[in-house]
Nucleic acid binder design. Structure first.
Length: 934
DNA sequence: TTTATCACG
DNA sequence: GACGTACGTGATAAAG
């Protein structure tokens, strides 16, 4: 909010924002799926542009702003060089009609809009920037176009709206290897193939930067071209000197254009309410209208009071938070929440662990900026944390816990009041422990995950992150309230005046986020994924976590002993073979023993840091050559891993109150829609080796119960067959036989009966490779065969199942166009890096994009099964409860007498969770331990 | 806090 | 023609 302030105006220079409108248009177009307004006109770019413009207007701090567009394709540059930008494809058909509507959008917001025949937007931007500087006005150019980098100088900054960061001289130097003032010279030499700027043959950006660094500028270089040592380069610089000069004229922006509108016209103005409303209504942008109504424009029939724009509210609403210390005040808040229909809640606890943290207080928000905190278990204790008796003050006045529980009970179960939390699964646990159930719920963390996924990296759905990203608001940090490290205190020791500010703010911003994110589900077509898959998972996962799984500590301790003995023996032997003791667990020390002292040759790669790899594949190679030490190290590693990560650690994870292990399932961490499991991770309990598998013997059922394991057979490969529509593969699944053997039979032309196991093994590896986005390198490494041979296998596979190639290309195209791919059920899996200029990073993103609909589709299917399961069990009158999910497997605890009936029902629900063009098949097993049930 | 390794699907 | 890769997770110990 900029207030007229004469003193500030006198000291801080005015600021002008110049927006590269054409850049915005293409970004908006390519980042959004097709959308049309009621009359059929495509408007996805208009919509994206509008929201981007709104965000910019809300965020920027400037007295003047203008959006600059290109006009027509012919400019003065075509007179210099007829082919300039000649190879640019025409704008997409459904984008063309959106150009004029986007001009309307700018005018609807009452923002100046400039374009001029014969000049590019960049020339107008350069001209206005120069004029503004001459008058002492600071300029920010909003664009990520590299051609504008030449403008960067004192008082002229570039801002990349895509990456949300300024582009300064350092970034320019990173891109061009020279400062902004020499960018033009480098571009003139290097040319630009996408714009048909020829440059000088054989010279790229790197070489150009080097030459300019050495010779100062283009003319000096051309004049002294004869001094160049490399003969070809010298010849080219001489021969193509004029072409370089012409290229410079092409890339050099004109800053003396006779612009159609003076700077004075760029003053920031409030939009005309009627015009803005008319524009939004005409284009069907109801959600945008709802956002701006009451803030930028008054609502019809509204005095103009309540702000309805979540962004504006968050930045402007001066929040005053209430401390609730008596029953009457609590009742008023409960009534207010009931009337509001939506209430955000948040709990504060005395420990991080969801299963153990005790309730310290509850906060509620009923409207943006309107929130309260109800302390329940705060202690006294004074300012000093060193409370060695004596100095402690009395505990503050608080509502007794049971009285508060009684007051909240109805509200939290009221089906007409939506309870919103950020990671509300945590609060469900805490509240359950004081006897409070909560329904229905929404979760802003899950909403953010469903909408934005891993687009901006992983772990970016924290409340602090989101408040900053969406509202530019810095939340009070937990450590500012409780400290950190040794001096950290628990929340029940925080004085109430600080506690209320911290706790109520969490509820407040959770509510604001909910208002911002929930409408996006419809706009971005994510309603089904959220409502039928991820939202129902929240209470379900909470009950699974609370159930936990029984673990027998005696079995684990026994195994620990056995493993310790083996580790000790192996350690002695390794040290004897090495001739001296060393830390086997240190890759660095092990590498020295193997490669320096014993002079073994690592046939394998060395890692990034330059150190030689001692990974299992390397050690296996060495062991196969007959070396004992690496063979023993492999055994040592296996037992160390099993002991430290599993047998020792799991005993510590047994909850003393329940005798069970309670994992936390992550619903918002993965790029594909899978769950994750942590603290402890129960999705990676060993199974592949005999010794490791014994750990599963410690996972047991309660007396009178058995564990039921039900897992999907080949679900990912079945999804490949369905999604890529591979006829031969679908047929094979319909016949229900050994899929890898059938694959081998088709590829190698051998009958399934009496097949060489090696052929089947190879086919199996290829089937897995397909799921991962196959490469000859990866397959050759997996099978230890030469790359050429791997390539021939892949070719044979494509020959037999040609549809797979088409799927791979289609998927990559989709990822490149939208930045994400969708699963069968519509979940977006983001593919950051898909257009990376680094071919390595791009390849990685491409393979991930190929894998995502497969892995993510399987994740969607098992989620559907999980959501259906509790009701199906209840209806059948069965007492089983779901305990764990391991990607394609569900583990339930079942009354012994109901084992068979439950197994049949679980299989039916899982197999019916999706209807594909191939059957889904589920295998089940029941036993007293997980080892036997699987 | 980052890196290497290895457990799972 | 070289590049350098199989997809997705989390926990541990070593080392910076």
């Amino acid at each position: 909010m900029t207030e007229p302030d004469s003193t500030a105006a006198a000291t801080a220079p005015d600021r002008l924002f110049l927006v590269d409108g054409s850049g915005y248009i293409f970004r908006a177009y390519h980042s959004l799926p097709p959308m049309t307004r009621p009359d059929g006109t495509p408007v996805n770019a208009v919509y994206g542009f509008t929201t981007m413009l709104m965000k910019l207007l809300a965020d920027m701090d400037a007295e003047r702003v203008a959006v600059i567009f290109d006009k027509g394709r012919k400019t003065f540059r075509n007179e210099i060089h007829p082919d300039y930008k000649g190879h640019r494809p025409d704008a997409p058909e459904d984008l063309v009609p959106q150009f004029p509507i986007i001009r309307d959008a700018v005018r609807a917001f009452n923002v100046a809009c400039v374009e001029m025949e014969g000049f590019e937007a960049d020339d107008l931007i350069a001209t206005y920037a120069k004029q503004a500087r001459a008058r002492g006005i600071d300029v920010t150019v909003v664009s990520s176009d590299k051609d504008l980098m030449q403008l960067v100088r004192d008082g002229v900054a570039l801002f990349d709206p895509m990456k949300n960061r300024p582009i300064g001289p350092d970034q320019v130097r990173e891109k061009f290897g020279v400062g902004p003032d020499r960018v033009v010279d480098v571009q003139a030499l290097a040319g630009d193939s996408s714009d048909n700027v020829p440059g000088v043959p054989g010279i790229g950006v790197k070489t150009a930067a080097q030459l300019i660094e050495e010779y100062g500028d283009l003319e000096s270089l051309l004049a002294r071209a004869g001094e160049i040592k490399q003969p070809k380069r010298r010849q080219n610089l001489t021969e193509f000197a004029d072409q370089a000069r012409m290229s410079r004229d092409l890339v050099l922006l004109r800053d003396d254009v006779d612009v159609p509108e003076p700077l004075e016209g760029f003053d920031v103005r409030q939009p005309d309410p009627d015009a803005l409303r008319a524009f939004l209504v005409e284009n069907g942008f109801k959600s945008v209208l709802a956002k701006v109504e009451g803030d930028l424009i008054p609502k019809p029939g509204d005095g103009g009071g309540a702000a309805a724009d979540p962004v504006a509210e968050a930045t402007s609403a001066a929040a005053a938070y209430a401390l609730v210390q008596d029953i009457e005040a609590l009742r008023r808040w409960v009534a207010e929440a009931r009337d509001a229909d939506v209430v955000a809640i948040d709990t504060e606890t005395d420990a991080l662990s969801a299963m153990r943290g005790g309730l310290v207080g509850i906060s509620m928000a009923t409207a943006p900026g309107r929130a309260c905190y109800i302390p329940l278990a705060h202690k006294g204790g004074g300012e000093g944390q060193l409370d060695l008796g004596g100095g402690g003050t009395e505990a503050p006045r608080q509502i007794p816990l049971d009285a508060c529980v009684a007051e909240l009970k109805d509200l939290l179960l009221n089906p007409g009041v939506l309870k919103v939390g950020h990671n509300i699964k945590y609060d469900l646990h805490v509240l359950a422990r004081v006897g409070l159930e909560v329904a229905p719920v929404d979760d802003t963390m899950v909403l953010s995950y469903v909408l934005d996924g891993t687009r901006l990296g992983q772990g970016t759905h924290g409340l602090d992150d989101l408040a900053e990203r969406h509202f530019g608001h810095a939340m009070i940090a937990f450590k500012d309230v409780c400290g950190s490290g040794k001096t950290q205190i628990t929340f029940d020791r925080v004085p109430l005046d600080k506690a209320v500010e911290y706790a109520a703010e969490d509820a407040d911003y959770t509510l604001r986020l909910h208002r911002l994110l929930k409408p996006r589900l419809i706009e971005e077509r994510m309603v089904t994924v959220y409502e039928t898959l991820d939202r129902p998972m929240v209470p379900l996962l909470a009950t699974m976590e609370r159930a936990g799984i029984k673990v027998d500590p005696a079995v684990l301790k026994d195994l620990s002993k056995t493993f310790a003995a083996r580790i000790g023996d192996l350690e002695d032997e390794v040290h004897r073979l090495a001739g001296h003791p060393f830390n086997i667990g240190s890759p660095k020390q092990l590498g020295e023993v193997l490669f320096d002292e014993m002079s073994l040759q690592s046939g394998r790669k060395s890692s990034k840091t330059g150190a030689k790899s001692t990974g299992a594949d390397v050690l296996e190679d060495l062991a196969a050559q007959g070396h004992d030490l690496p063979a023993r190290v492999l055994d040592w590693r296996q037992f160390s891993k099993l002991k430290s990560t599993y047998t020792d650690a799991l005993v510590e994870d047994i909850n003393p109150d329940t005798g069970r292990v309670h994992t936390t399932f992550g619903l918002t961490g993965t790029s594909t829609g899978r769950l994750s499991s942590n603290d402890p991770n129960l999705q990676n309990i060993p199974i592949r080796t005999e010794e490791g598998r014994r750990i599963r013997e410690a996972f047991v059922a309660e007396p009178g119960h058995v564990l039921l394991s039900a897992d999907y057979s080949q679900i990912e490969l079945r999804l490949v067959a369905h999604v890529a529509d591979i006829k031969a593969l679908k047929e094979a699944f319909h016949h229900g036989a050994d899929i890898h053997a059938i694959t081998a039979s088709r590829m190698f032309g051998e009958p399934v009966e009496g097949m060489d196991p090696m052929l089947r093994r190879r086919a199996k590896a290829i089937n897995f490779g397909i799921i991962y986005g196959i490469s000859a390198f990866g397959l050759s490494r997996q099978l230890s065969i030469p790359r050429g041979e791997a390539q021939r296998f892949i070719d044979a596979y494509f020959q037999e199942f040609p549809e797979i190639l088409d799927y791979m290309e289609r998927t990559k195209d989709e990822a490149r166009k939208h930045g994400f791919v969708r699963t069968l059920f519509g979940r977006k899996c983001w593919a950051p890096g898909i257009n990376d200029k680094n071919p390595n990073a791009r390849g990685l993103a491409e393979r991930a994009a190929i894998n995502a609909p497969i892995q993510g589709g399987a994740a969607d299917i098992i989620k559907r099964a999980m959501v259906k399961l509790p009701d199906a069990l209840t209806e059948a009158g069965l007492g089983a409860r779901l305990l764990l999910q391991v990607h394609d497997e569900l583990i339930l605890e079942v009354p012994e007498a109901e084992a068979d009936q439950t197994a049949a029902l679980v299989r039916k629900v899982m197999e019916g969770a999706a209807s594909l063009s191939v059957p889904l098949v589920v295998d089940t097993g029941t036993a007293g331990t997980w080892a036997e049930a699987h």
